[in-house]
Design a protein around this nucleic acid. Structure first.
Lengths: 190, 190
DNA sequence: AACGTAGTACTACAGGTGGAGTGGTGTCAA
DNA sequence: TTGACACCACTCCACCTGTAGTACTACGTT
């Protein structure tokens, strides 16, 4: 098992692209090698087996989907009212949609996790933490709405992103924009 | 190309199970043969190629996810108020969750459709029609809420089902129940 | 400065799996 | 008798894993 951390990172990021492009079943050592443009056999040296590869990707993917420190800091500035909240949600949808392959890879991982208990455990932990953090942040911000509001928004926005990424012709950009606004407004409306 | 329609049906239904179990990439002629318990080579005789197989499954899967006539008729009986609406949504979540493999297969198809334009066209058409039908039905029923309400509910419930099927430990049954209620209540709240 | 060692990159190969496609034979019904 | 279909068998091929072996590089030792 090799230890070069940059190379491992490169391989995991390549694996994310492979997942998005080829699907979970297409995630093989050789495919990762090819995507990362390293010699065949390299991924074999960095991951014990496919299960290990899936689990490591599951741990990393979420980091790449979350906003960076600067974005988080910026999100806490200014007045915290509903308009501002809607703005942040628009940003969120764009940010996630922009890292297209990352979100598709996460979906692939979710589906794969129905077959891999270890992966399921990793994803469950990460996502539960994220939801709780969002609820905590929301509560602290003094915005109207309760924890249910946060979860409803989480639900609606997630599927909105799925819709946009997988079947982009279902909703127009305009409709997506309006749906985000409506989701914020109505979910906060306790 | 063989024409026996019952056998074709059997093969397509088997393909749905394969999709749910093995993922999109695992949907091969041989896997369908095995799942349908027919001799190897049979699926080859019924579908021109994998693309054809995907497209035909895409056309069929939605029929199996929609409620049957009796259920639809029943849903239009009685008073049409918010309580009744919530009841129907609980039923919906259960029905779809119960046909577990069908919903997972649809998710696999969505992801696969990022690679197969023909499949994407089929799915887009079906789903758009379903949304429009739901909006139409809602408007005709005289319930409070507008078309945005219907779409917000569509978004939230879809992801709720995803969550439940892929990472069942994120939300408890109790939380799911409450989220459905809250989703109905707040989305109708114009 | 020369040498040895450890860790890693790269290459090559052996062994195995599984799927596509097709042609041939048997069977049944019109 | 003929046509459509079920069933079976076989060939070709693509691809993947795991690993052994070689080359390279950096670093520490003397």
């Amino acid at each position: 098992m090799r230890r070069n951390p940059e190379r491992r990172q490169t391989l995991i990021d390549a694996a994310i692209e492979v997942l998005a492009k080829e699907g979970a079943r297409g995630l093989t050592f050789r495919a990762v090698d090819a995507e990362a443009a390293v010699p065949p056999g390299t991924a074999s040296n960095y991951f014990a087996n496919r299960d290990d590869l899936f689990t490591q990707v599951g741990g990393r993917i979420y980091e790449r989907l979350l906003p960076d420190e600067a974005t988080i800091a910026r999100s806490r500035e200014g007045v915290q009212d509903q308009t501002r909240y809607a703005e942040l949600m628009h940003e969120l949808v764009h940010r996630v949609s922009a890292f297209n392959s990352g979100y598709l890879a996460l979906l692939e991982l979710r589906l794969e996790s129905t077959r891999r208990p270890e992966l399921r455990a990793v994803l469950t932990k990460r996502i539960r933490e994220d939801i709780d953090a969002n609820i905590g942040h929301h509560t602290a911000s003094g915005l109207p709405g309760d924890s249910t509001s946060v979860m409803l928004l989480y639900l609606a926005l997630n599927w909105l992103i799925v819709e946009r990424l997988t079947l982009p012709d279902i909703f127009t950009e305009q409709e997506i924009h309006e749906l985000v606004d409506a989701a914020v407004q109505r979910s906060l409306n306790t």
